[in-house]
């Protein structure tokens, strides 16, 4: 018995490159969306570094998954959330990030979590 109205929040806290935790979190978000669940994908802490918009894969001899992040809207994940405090702490601004990101306050993050049936952290 699955619930079509279920809302899953996936929070990516881990940075890119040092592990594939963030990539595996995004994979789960894509699969949940493919199964017609409402998905809130949130990047918090060092996780926001996944979203920097001018990374070059040639420099690291590996695939970047920013292409996967740019494709999120095709999987019905219209919006990717980043927390304002994480941006501020890293002296970053929204214009340094991929275009489909929305910066939110901690109170808005709390609301997303409260509204979710499940939350998974990566």
């Amino acid at each position: 018995m699955s619930n079509l109205a279920s809302q899953i929040t996936i929070i990516i806290n881990s940075p890119p490159f040092s592990s594939i935790s963030g990539k595996e979190g995004v994979d789960l978000a894509l699969v949940c969306a493919a199964f017609e669940q409402k998905v809130n994908l949130v990047f918090d802490g060092d996780g926001i570094l996944h979203l920097i918009n001018n990374q070059r894969d040639k420099a690291i001899n590996d695939k970047l998954h920013d292409m996967q992040l740019k494709a999120l809207e095709f999987y019905d994940i219209d919006q990717v959330f980043v927390t304002k405090v994480s941006l501020k702490n890293r002296k970053l601004t929204e214009n340094k990030l991929l275009s489909n990101c929305k910066a939110i306050e901690q109170t808005e993050l709390k609301q997303l979590i409260d509204d979710s049936t499940q939350v998974v952290n990566f």
Binding site: L28, V31, Q118
Partner: peptide, 12 residues
Amino acid sequence: GLGQLAANLAKN
């Protein structure tokens, strides 16, 4: 598949 985890998450 990872879809099984999505199903586990969505289960009431």
